[in-house]
Design a protein around this nucleic acid. Structure first.
Lengths: 127, 127
DNA sequence: TCTTAAATACAACTAAGTTGCAAATATAGT
DNA sequence: ACTATATTTGCAACTTAGTTGTATTTAAGA
């Protein structure tokens, strides 16, 4: 069950993903919005927004949760996956607009595939 | 810096990976060995074993740490990666002996790639 | 405006993983 | 074998991401 009511808190959270195309960690979001709402609210709203397909979540390098806006996410087709890239220098995370093809695995039924790439982003390579 | 001394604790931990070819979560390991050693010791030994290239670590579906024995792991070649498969029914995790090719990403320097697949394993499909 | 089901704040909790320090132990040198 | 010492371990306390229960507040339909 997703969002049912358009509250101020929901609007504020959604706005965060509009103004920034890169992914945002829950930790950052909780910190950034701590004057607007409780951290429990942040967690619950993100949960619901994901149910509704507005955002998608994934785990960053420390196992912490990140969210990004769903653009052309088709969460039903799981054999081509868009990877997430986390810069090990500046920490920024982006959804990459490429497909990583996951081959068929014998004797296993693959339903979800997550690809996390780590390295240096353009800005950090140049510095 | 890895293991310097061959202690009983180190032997016990290493033995866990010998008798079982699938990956083991740290949580399981700490629980299984709690009569043999302290959880801090488990964490520290695993850390060192990874430094030494004896085991490799990755994050499972909840962001919890898992370890598996390194067989033909070449941690220096990062553009072909072996994925980890976690069964969402029984929870078991295996290293898959296939390569997932990560394409070159423009303007980014990919150093690490993690692929986590989730679905049903052979045994759980049949049940 | 009134009703009520959904949403929120708050505080307490859970659990994975870390840290600091004193005690124990493996190993090299004698 | 014995000793010295640096490594390893146990223990307890801590950190922090994420969850839960409950009373209060609020959106939205009647």
């Amino acid at each position: 069950m997703g969002i049912l009511r358009k509250t101020k808190s929901v609007e504020i959270v959604v706005k965060q993903f509009d103004k920034d195309s890169s992914a945002i960690s829950v930790i950052t979001l909780v910190e950034r919005l701590n004057s607007d709402m409780n951290k429990t609210t942040v967690y619950r709203i993100l949960n619901k927004l994901e149910d509704d397909g507005v955002v998608h979540s994934f785990l960053g390098k420390n196992g912490h949760k990140w969210y990004a806006k769903c653009n052309n996410c088709s969460s039903t087709k799981h054999h081509d996956v868009h990877p997430h890239f986390q810069c090990i220098t500046c920490g920024k995370v982006d959804c990459l607009d490429i497909n990583v093809h996951i081959p068929e695995i014998p004797n296993r039924n693959v339903e979800i595939a997550q690809v996390l790439l780590q390295g240096q982003c353009d800005a950090c390579i140049k510095n």
